[in-house]
Design a protein around this nucleic acid. Structure first.
Lengths: 216, 216
DNA sequence: GCTGCGGATAATGTATACGATATCCGAATC
DNA sequence: GATTCGGATATCGTATACATTATCCGCAGC
């Protein structure tokens, strides 16, 4: 299991990503590399590699000699991300349900259990566990490129969910949907998986729209 | 136009990407960072940032303390990439045809002209111009995330096209298809754009399949 | 002859150092 | 008072240096 050996820059990707997703890094103003590196106890070199990766993920943008900036949110982007998920995620999850091995099914089950627990405890980093669960439903499709794209899309959508929906009690309702979805997935009922996944995405999007349209 | 100011690491992304796409970098063995950096007249720092970006693009993979490797090709990946393009590209091009400004239409026209010229001269870097043309047809959709994903998919598919199709005369035939497609795009004939784009992708995929299935 | 150990060598990954670029701010001019 | 210029300061981006880790290869043991 050499997957557990990871260099600094890859650890920093997750650390900084989490800060961005939780809104701890101000948008549209440059990330001070020396300051952040010092705060995290590292040098700029691995930090910059992490920032470059996060730019590729779509969380940051950069300007030459001016540095990296957190990208601002927009309703257009939210709509686009959810439209893409709708096009890709139901079919991929259905395919994964078909071809998942016992081991992968166990992993998905464990992941959902953890997500449940963390949600009920209102613990930190619910978003990351939510993402892990969805990915566990997708990875067994053996479609690496598609799964990778969907992972990116989840990361992007998480910013909107955390900002607009997490403050409300959306998480609990999502857990209901997760359970139903997971049971269909386990039963390899591909039609239900597709439909439930579609509904899960659509309902989240509609919750988001309600939050986005009137206030801001 | 400060877009023209670019730091070393971003220039290196394009340089190294081009080498990977043309098969100049051996797959599955580590990229020697010191050697490559010296050859390019830079240090490892910007090179590693470039390699990290290329890993996010899906061209490289990395192992901690062992470095970056060019990912090997597989028929599964080729099928997957083309399946994704089929799902996303026709609709996006159609949408872009609708909303393209005069300026964007001019840009697309110029890009096609350049591509034609370079193809007939059998010049270097046809692939990059091919990608530029397709992107010029997609960008006016104003769907940044989708366009970005499609750009990545084009980069991934280019490896297969260059390796298996470019040696043959596929480029000329593709140019015919490009012209038809572009005319429908200019005419904002969205139905034709969708259908021609679909055909263009399907036909390239079928050419690829013919090359992949018998020999290897 | 094959396998496992251990030191020498090579390569990766990160900290430090520094030149280049941008930003800030006060003074001079209109 | 508003604007432009120019020097001081801060920040970015990259080269150099070095610690850590992996790889290679000869030798001992079975």
């Amino acid at each position: 299991m050499s997957l557990l050996v990871r260099n600094l820059s890859e650890q920093l990707v997750e650390l900084v990503r989490e800060r961005i997703l939780t809104g701890q890094v101000a948008a549209d103003l440059p990330i001070r590399q020396d300051a952040l590196a010092a705060e995290l106890g590292v040098s700029k070199i691995p930090l910059r590699e992490a920032l470059a990766r996060l730019e590729q993920e779509g969380l940051l943008r950069s300007q030459a000699n001016r540095g990296f900036f957190v990208r601002s949110l927009s309703t257009e982007e939210a709509e686009e991300v959810y439209a893409l998920r709708l096009k890709l995620e139901p079919a991929t999850a259905a395919r994964a349900a078909q071809s998942a091995t016992d081991e992968e099914r166990k992993l998905a089950s464990d992941t959902l259990e953890t997500l449940d627990r963390v949600t009920n405890e209102h613990g930190e980093g619910v978003g990351a566990f939510n993402r892990a669960f969805h990915l566990a439903l997708l990875r067994p499709s053996r479609q690496a490129v598609t799964t990778n794209i969907l992972e990116r899309l989840h990361i992007l959508s998480e910013r909107y969910v955390r900002k607009h929906l997490e403050p409300l009690g959306r998480d609990e309702r999502a857990n209901e949907e997760h359970l139903q979805l997971f049971q269909a997935w386990l039963a390899r009922d591909t039609d239900s998986v597709e439909e439930l996944m579609r509904l899960h995405i659509v309902q989240t999007l509609e919750d988001l729209r309600r939050q986005l349209s009137p206030s801001r």
